[in-house]
Amino acid sequence: MDNIYRIKAIVFDMDGVIIDSTAEIENFWESWAKKEEVIFNNDVIVKYIHGRTTNETIEQLFSTSLPDVKKQIAISASDFDTAMRPELIEGVLNFLSRLSTLSVRIGLVTSSPKERVSNLLDLNSTYHFFNEIITGDDIKYGKPHPEPYLKIADKLKTAPEDCLVFEDSDSGIESALSAGMYVISINNNKINHKNIVAYTQNFSTLTIDNNQIKSLIEPYIQIDLV
């Protein structure tokens, strides 16, 4: 990335980036896979679970299940979402708080429906940090299609190439890269691409105040990070 380049918007995925829900989500879908005698392994998780809408997961993972069973799974998934009380990813609250003081737009892109997004962000007092949000209800094509990230760029009134994205899933990273954005990959080092500027496990080692994040972001936004 050219050092004179300026990032104008920073965009976050939700599950696995803002909220620590990955294991809980995998356990939910694994329980249904066992009931329906469907193969469930890491390849399935990558291909059908993370970054996908509930309907996409049901149609793809349970393609041979009866329609009534699919409806039952959808109801169960909705109840599961309502009951979830996940913690925030380590360090993300401080990171968002610091970002909110800077001259940079903040967006969220998730495959989850609006109601789930509102509930979980309100639960963790993070909704107010985001200038714009794109949910699964706002898109025709989900991740890894670039539509979700192209839509957030449009809502933020920022060119895709002026956006930096925090993502964790393969499909989400591919979506952001396909949209022409830069990416910091959270807990996922499987994808190599010139527009992935960093890999990190969580935000506790990627704080806005230390030299690491300053070297990554400071050259690209129009404000001094002190």
Score class of each variant (00 low, 15 high):
K143H: 06
K143L: 09
P144S: 14
H145R: 10
H145Y: 08
H145N: 13
H145V: 03
P146D: 04
Y149H: 07
Y149F: 15
L150H: 03
L150K: 02
K151W: 12
K151L: 15
K151M: 15
K151H: 15
I152F: 02
I152K: 00
I152D: 00
A153E: 01
A153R: 01
D154S: 13
K155C: 13
K155R: 11
L156R: 00
L156H: 02
K157C: 05
T158K: 03
T158V: 07
A159M: 11
A159N: 15
P160V: 08
P160K: 04
E161V: 13
E161A: 07
D162Q: 04
L164H: 02
F166Q: 01
E167Q: 10
S169R: 02
S169V: 09
D170P: 07
D170A: 09
I173K: 01
I173P: 00
I173H: 01
I173S: 01
E174C: 09
S175K: 03
S175V: 06
S175H: 05
A176L: 10
A176W: 07
L177I: 12
L177V: 13
A179N: 04
A179G: 11
A179V: 05
G180D: 12
G180M: 10
M181Y: 03
M181T: 03
Y182C: 09
Y182Q: 04
Y182A: 03
V183S: 01
S185H: 12
S185Y: 06
S185F: 12
S185Q: 08
S185V: 11
S185C: 13
I186N: 00
N187T: 11
N188R: 11
N188F: 11
N188C: 13
N188W: 04
N189T: 11
N189I: 09
N189V: 15
K190Y: 09
K190N: 06
K190M: 09
N192T: 08
K194R: 06
I196S: 02
V197F: 07
Y199A: 05
T200Y: 05
T200L: 14
Q201E: 09
N202E: 15
N202G: 06
N202Y: 08
F203G: 00
S204R: 11
T205C: 14
L206H: 00
L206I: 05
L206Y: 01
L206A: 04
T207D: 11
T207N: 10
I208D: 12
I208C: 13
I208W: 13
D209P: 07
N210E: 07
N210R: 12
N211W: 15
N211E: 12
N211V: 15
N211P: 14
Q212T: 05
Q212V: 14
Q212G: 08
I213V: 12
I213A: 05
K214V: 10
K214S: 08
K214I: 07
L216Y: 07
L216N: 04
